Lab assay of single mutants.
Amino acid sequence: ETGKELVLALYDYQEKSPREVTMKKGDILTLLNSTNKDWWKVEVNDRQGFVPAAYVKKL
């Protein structure tokens, strides 16, 4: 879809709370919100949640 910003997972991340999502290094995720410098909201496999901003980079 146009207008979607994507990020690349630089590291594996295992969710530690229900508000977070698990990702694997190399995953491409849809970026939903990056206003917080530490935690970015992403969508992966129809799930939305937060990942550490340092673990992903914008494509």
Score class of each variant (00 low, 15 high):
Trp40Arg: 01
Leu32Met: 07
Ser17Glu: 08
Val42Asn: 00
Asp27Cys: 07
Trp40Met: 03
Pro52Gln: 02
Gln14Ala: 14
Lys58Asn: 07
Ala9Met: 02
Leu6Met: 11
Pro18His: 10
Lys57Asn: 07
Leu10Ser: 03
Arg47His: 08
Pro18Gly: 09
Arg19Ala: 12
Thr35Phe: 10
Leu31Thr: 01
Asp38Ala: 11
Ile28Leu: 09
Tyr13Leu: 02
Lys57Ile: 15
Val51Arg: 01
Tyr13Ile: 01
Arg19Ile: 13
Trp39Lys: 02
Gln48Val: 15
Asp46Tyr: 08
Arg19Gln: 13
Ser17Cys: 09
Leu32Asn: 02
Thr30Asp: 05
Asp38Pro: 03
Leu31Glu: 00
Lys24Gly: 05
Ala53Asp: 02
Gly3Met: 14
Arg47Thr: 08
Gly3Asp: 12
Val7Met: 05
Pro52Met: 03
Val7Tyr: 09
Leu10Cys: 07
Asn33Met: 08
Glu43Lys: 10
Gly26His: 05
Glu15Asp: 05
Glu15Pro: 15
Glu5Pro: 10
Val42Thr: 01
Glu15Leu: 07
Asn33His: 08
Val51Tyr: 00
Lys37Trp: 08
Val7His: 04
Phe50Trp: 15
Glu20Ile: 04
Leu8Arg: 08
Asn45Ser: 10
Tyr13Cys: 02
Ile28Pro: 01
Thr35Gly: 10
Leu31His: 00
Val21Trp: 05
Glu15Lys: 14
Lys4Tyr: 14
Leu59Ile: 14
Pro18Cys: 09
Gly3Glu: 14
Val21Lys: 02
Asp27Phe: 05
Asp46Asn: 13
Glu1Phe: 06
Val44Ala: 14
Arg47Pro: 00
Thr22Ala: 07
Glu15Trp: 05
Asp12Leu: 02
Gln48Lys: 12
Pro52Val: 02
Ala54Thr: 11
Ser17Phe: 06
Thr30Gly: 08
Asn36Leu: 08
Ser34Gln: 10
Ser17Asn: 13
Lys25Met: 08
Tyr13His: 04
Val51Gln: 00
Leu8Ile: 15
Trp39Ser: 03
Leu31Asp: 00
Asn45Pro: 10
Lys57Gln: 14
Trp39Asn: 02
Leu29Ala: 08
Val56Gly: 01
Tyr13Asn: 01
Asp12Arg: 03
Lys4Glu: 09
Ala53Tyr: 02
Lys25Glu: 07
Arg19Lys: 13
Val7Pro: 00
Lys25His: 06
Val42Lys: 00
Val51Lys: 00
Leu32Ser: 03
Leu31Gly: 01
Lys25Cys: 08
Lys4Ile: 13
Lys41Cys: 12
Asn33Tyr: 07
Trp40Glu: 01
Asn45Leu: 12
Glu15Tyr: 05
Val42Arg: 00
Val51Asp: 02
Asp46Ile: 07
Gly49Phe: 08
Glu20Cys: 07
Leu31Met: 03
Gly3Ile: 14
Glu1Arg: 02
Ala53Phe: 03
Thr35Tyr: 10
Tyr55His: 07
Glu43Asp: 07
Ile28Met: 07
Arg19Asp: 14
Met23Gln: 02
Lys57Leu: 14
Asn36Thr: 06
Lys16Tyr: 05
Arg19Pro: 06
Val56Trp: 01
Asp38Phe: 15
Pro18Lys: 09
Asn33Gln: 10
Val56Met: 05
Leu10Met: 10
Val21Thr: 05
Ala54Asn: 13
Val42Cys: 06
Gly3Val: 14
Leu6Arg: 10
Tyr55Ala: 11
Val51Ile: 09
Thr35Lys: 11
Asp12Pro: 05
Ile28Asp: 00
Lys58His: 09
Asn33Ser: 12
Thr35Ala: 12
Tyr11Thr: 08
Asp46Arg: 09
Thr2Met: 13
Arg47Val: 08
Asn36His: 12
Lys37Phe: 08
Ala53Trp: 01
Lys25Thr: 07
Leu8Gly: 03
Leu59Val: 12
Ala9Arg: 01
Ala54Glu: 12
Glu15Cys: 11
Gly3Gln: 14
Gln48Leu: 07
Tyr13Phe: 07
Leu6Lys: 11
Leu8Lys: 08
Phe50Asn: 04
Ala9Tyr: 01
Lys24Phe: 13
Gln48Asn: 08
Val42His: 00
Asn33Pro: 03
Leu10Glu: 04
Val56Tyr: 01
Val44Lys: 15
Tyr55Gly: 06
Thr35Ser: 13
Lys25Phe: 05
Asn36Glu: 11
Lys41Gly: 05
